[in-house]
Amino acid sequence: MRVAVVTESFLPQVNGVTNTVGRILEHLAAHGHDALVVAPRPGPSVYAGFPVVAVPGVGLPGYREFKLGLPTRRVERLLREFGPDLVHLASPIALGAAGARAARRLGVPCVAVFQTDVAGFARAYGFRGTDAMIWSWIRHIHRQADITLVPSRASYEQLSAQGVPRLALWARGVDAARFNPAHRDQTLREWLLGDREVLVGYVGRLAGDKRVHLLACLADLPKVRIVAVGDGPAAPSLRALIPSAALPGFLSGQALSAAYASLDVFVHTGADDTFGQCVQEAMASGVPVVAPAVGGPLDLVRHEHTGLLFAPDDTDELRRRVAELVASPALRARYGAKAREAVLTRSWASVCDELLGHYSQVLTGRRPLEHALG
């Protein structure tokens, strides 16, 4: 089949949307399908053997590094020339809206993937009172899709309450070989630890919407060295806020695998995550997770089994949860082993096969099954 992927984010931006689109394209290539990618510039011209067409993008206020694709009329022309059997909208906001409109005008089925809590993102950057307007726009886009795939039960309930129809759950995969306890690196640990004994870390974008400043409440825990892996606009303020923290910057490949596996405790600080891929990667690495009891992490972290949950805005509880794990190597080991066990079946191959099943339903004209939440 021929799939046109219109994505709000792609390389060189590294985030959940980019990562998911990359895995989808690799799966399509491996199974002999054809694809076209439309994404904001700058970016590669080819990925997984498929052409990537870049359209103009604009940096967001307060986060200029994040480029939002502009909904140009060129999108419809590109899709018409490619002749897709199906249009895939990855986290549609602006460029995705143009993709939805083009699919409708061309009479092509459309699958939308909800992946970004835009209203929560806007609030994090000071745009208060915009929720109603944002949700109206999201409804407008997703009502044009034959199906909207959501990554977690929390997102399903959120979109259902907002009147978005034809919803189905579609989670994310994890590479259990790449993210594996075997990558634990004692030399790296010694370098990061210095005179401390326990590494408590975060991996992801260092940005306001990820609330990385909450790590500061853990900095004076006895024996603890805070590690924040990643880059973003909040890096300078985080470095000033926690001078004792280790901030190795953006890591990829083997360095990222080693960083995850070398942690003793993983702390997820964001409260607006629709899934929480970094949580799943930490779990695959055999690291117990402390995460807010909201959004995507609720589907991933089983409290007092694979990790611990805390009330999203309660820094005292966050501190207590982390301190509990810091004090008990045996508890860390037990939760870490259970965490890895919990995600071993979530391969990208199986997840992308499930996506192809959704494509098939849409292409054959069958009404997609809406997953009921139990």
Rank of each mutant, 00 (worst) to 15 (best):
residue 371 H to G: 05
residue 12 P to D: 05
residue 17 V to N: 11
residue 291 A to C: 09
residue 68 L to E: 11
residue 170 W to F: 12
residue 277 Q to G: 03
residue 344 L to W: 01
residue 118 V to I: 14
residue 236 P to W: 11
residue 15 N to M: 05
residue 40 P to R: 01
residue 179 F to E: 09
residue 286 G to M: 06
residue 152 S to L: 11
residue 369 L to R: 14
residue 291 A to Q: 05
residue 47 Y to R: 11
residue 339 A to R: 07
residue 69 G to Q: 06
residue 173 G to R: 07
residue 58 V to A: 15
residue 33 H to W: 13
residue 59 G to C: 07
residue 188 L to W: 04
residue 215 L to F: 08
residue 93 I to V: 14
residue 173 G to T: 05
residue 99 G to N: 11
residue 196 R to Y: 02
residue 286 G to W: 01
residue 334 R to K: 14
residue 333 A to N: 11
residue 325 L to I: 03
residue 342 A to Q: 12
residue 191 W to C: 00
residue 28 L to F: 14
residue 96 G to I: 04
residue 205 R to T: 07
residue 151 P to S: 02
residue 65 E to V: 12
residue 306 T to C: 07
residue 120 G to S: 06
residue 260 Y to N: 06
residue 296 G to C: 02
residue 249 G to N: 08
residue 161 A to C: 00
residue 142 H to L: 06
residue 348 W to P: 02
residue 53 V to A: 06
residue 272 D to N: 13
residue 234 A to N: 06
residue 312 P to R: 05
residue 114 F to H: 13
residue 249 G to M: 09
residue 313 D to K: 07
residue 246 A to H: 13
residue 225 R to L: 07
residue 173 G to D: 01
residue 100 A to M: 08
residue 192 L to I: 11
residue 313 D to S: 14
residue 101 R to D: 05
residue 218 L to V: 10
residue 157 E to Y: 02
residue 236 P to K: 09
residue 35 A to N: 02
residue 285 S to H: 06
residue 247 L to K: 09
residue 45 S to N: 07
residue 279 V to M: 03
residue 317 E to K: 01
residue 321 R to A: 14
residue 64 R to Q: 14
residue 77 R to L: 14
residue 70 L to Q: 10
residue 178 R to W: 01
residue 146 D to Q: 03
residue 322 V to W: 01
residue 308 L to P: 02
residue 203 V to N: 08
residue 85 D to L: 00
residue 81 E to F: 02
